[in-house]
Design a protein around this nucleic acid. Structure first.
Lengths: 213, 213
DNA sequence: GTCTATATCTCGATAGAC
DNA sequence: GTCTATCGAGATATAGAC
């Protein structure tokens, strides 16, 4: 994985082990011993590099947030039509989740505890940027309403719907794969279709409609 | 709250305190002392009734999951049109989440650990029943495709989209309320609109469409 | 059944050798 | 930088009086 940081080899091993352990068990549930085992070193070394469990968690969280909120928000072009913006949003979001499937759990863990760390990170990193993904989504949406491309609707509601539709496949996968036979085996195909499906439903749910039913 | 169990008054106090504490902090993060304080008794009494923290957590989790599956698994009427089924599904699902907002976090915690408990409960409670909510959703969907009410589409993809759209509002609320000014204050109104929004997007995303764009 | 007091244990953190 | 050994805090769990 590209941590984009000048970590030593050992640091990186610890870091990755921690990411996995924290994702699986949360901050409280994670065990330093388990992280050490995963990384193939001893607890003492973790403290040597990261000083404390709190700091280690902080480091992992900061990394995750950078990936999640900043990478996703940068270099994105608002499409000429809302259709392009929407498609772009879905693809980027699913790409991100696919590349780092532990990520939603990591985030949701924090949320489950009232999102103490996450809220701070959002305020610090996401809100100050004008070109972040949610912001672009909303402004592109409003432009499209004005131009008549889509109907009058609430952009925030739509944003939540799209994010939920994307993330739930990953977050709910273990459950879904019990309910839906063959899902595990055909995950890749299903996920590819998922992008089209979400776009299709949402976009045509927004466009001016035929008079029927 | 209706625990539907023949608990003594003290047991019930402990149980409810535990439900709250576990919801807030997870299994590991929860503190027996805190549960005792919430319940207005001492730690020793918790052990008297529930033997160990593990067993207490088990009891709470089993209760939460039972509620979840009982609610989504029974008493649902397939509507005459898919529109009715969809509307019904959304309303029930959001009702359930609203009544028990800690539920997604409980579930997500289990999922993050590979859904050991949840998978078992699904196999045990949901799959054997023919009239469960997902099943009815899919069969109503297919009937509607056949009758021409909606277009050809994948019912499973649609089901995931709807569930994700419903649940993400609750699961993501702490984050969303940071990004979206005023969300916390207007939660009730926003949630009411949410039902209409999801129905509108999804249903008209599925119906035969005007030729435009 | 409920409490106080205490035993036991788990786990993060540190000391110190190499 | 990395290890082994150990400490000490804090949490779960138990004993025993009432």
């Amino acid at each position: 994985m590209d941590t984009e940081t000048p970590y030593s080899e050992t640091e990186e091993k610890i870091f990755l082990a921690a990411l996995e352990e924290f994702s699986l068990h949360g901050k409280q549930g994670a065990r330093m011993q388990q992280i050490a085992d995963r990384a193939g070193i001893t607890k003492a070394l973790i403290h040597y590099y990261f000083r404390s469990k709190d700091r280690l968690y902080e480091a992992v969280f900061a990394f995750v947030v950078r990936r999640y909120f900043i990478n996703i928000g940068e270099n994105i072009q608002p499409g000429e039509h809302f259709a392009d913006t929407l498609r772009n949003f879905i693809d980027r979001y699913i790409d991100l989740l696919e590349k780092q499937p532990a990520l939603p759990f990591f985030i949701l863990r924090d949320i489950a505890e009232g999102a103490p760390v996450l809220s701070a990170k959002i305020r610090e990193h996401l809100l100050p940027r004008k070109r972040n993904l949610p912001f672009l989504f909303v402004s592109s949406f409003e432009a499209a309403v004005a131009s008549g491309e889509i109907r009058q609707h609430d952009p925030i509601q739509t944003l939540i719907t799209v994010m939920g539709a994307c993330i739930y496949f990953f977050a709910g996968f273990p459950v879904l794969s019990v309910i839906i036979p063959g899902l595990k085996r055909e995950r890749a195909r299903f996920l590819a279709e998922r992008r089209d499906h979400i776009f299709d439903i949402v976009y045509y749910g927004l466009t001016p409609r035929a008079e029927n039913r």
